[in-house]
Design a protein around this nucleic acid. Sequence first.
DNA 1: GTCTATAATCAGATAGAC
DNA 2: GTCTATCTGATTATAGAC
Lengths: 190, 190
Amino acid sequence: MNNTDSGRKRILDSAAFILRTKGLGAARLSEIAQGAGMLAPSIYHHFKSKDELVEHVMLAGIYNNTRHIVAKVEVLGPETPPAERLRAAIIAHVEFLLSGDDFSSAVARVFDDLPGEMKQRVLAAYATFDNYWRDLLVAASPAGNDGQRTVARKLMIAMLDSCPTWYRAGRLSPTQIANQAADLFLKGFL
Amino acid sequence: MNNTDSGRKRILDSAAFILRTKGLGAARLSEIAQGAGMLAPSIYHHFKSKDELVEHVMLAGIYNNTRHIVAKVEVLGPETPPAERLRAAIIAHVEFLLSGDDFSSAVARVFDDLPGEMKQRVLAAYATFDNYWRDLLVAASPAGNDGQRTVARKLMIAMLDSCPTWYRAGRLSPTQIANQAADLFLKGFL
DNA sequence: GTCTATAATCAGATAGAC
DNA sequence: GTCTATCTGATTATAGAC
């Protein structure tokens, strides 16, 4: 985010950062505006309401994160074993979250707190992300049953999504944490 | 929670349920009061402020949950291997969350969103809980290093704490989910 | 496209009767 | 111990100048 970005982009970036940092309940339009170098009413030139702004952040976070993961997995050769594809996806997800992408971290932080009807709409976009993981788990463990794989997927995503809340730059790198998370889950799941 | 409980207890129970269900940002005193069979201003006879009420719910949740886990672990004989103690703790934690204890679920749901100074105070109580897990992990994996065990603990707690957000009564029982989570983590960690 | 000024709303909190 | 009535403050949102 820099001064030459359009007002709309600066608002979105600032909102993602605030949502990721403070959560939905504590996110103030005035603070989002300040981060974008303007005052609160100016936001309404770009977005119809606070809810609409939040929804845009969620959709962008889900879309970018899914695209990043899929790209990292699909670059692997067609002979790559399913477990390796799953490993690549886990590492891509954690590295994306810890790389400082505020949009994906905002989704991880705020998704559960979204108001009812917005949640339904965001959930529709989230299904692409969720189904991709589902397919990776099915491929990696074809002998398992759906119920257990669903539980494993929920546990895995919660585990990975938590990283931005406790990670602090320093001793361990994002890559190290991503690899540890992948080892932990794959050893446990397979 | 029933009609013969004291007003204070009914308020705490209702607050725990609302916090667990809607999160901190959407928790309204009017709704908490309604769940306790009274109107919002009556809450102030029992609590000084909304924040004080929330803090009591957090402290009760942490205290009860910790006590429950410790009891389930310490009942095991002194010859019990550390890995089995850790397994018992994981199962106890998940079963407690999924048994319908609104206080521990409220902590899992709302902890990250607490306002600054309250978070510090709640964190002091949370340390007892967190340190107990730390010691269980150290005992179960004495060869590991602190950094990796800390990451493993954070990942594990996030994974277990997520259960109330996605669990729905039906196909799988709390005990089945608890056992699957324990298998997943122990196989991955050890 | 951003500002100043202000409206509209809503939730937490207080006063005082019963 | 709970109620009705009210206050206060904060925050989203609008109107209109520049």
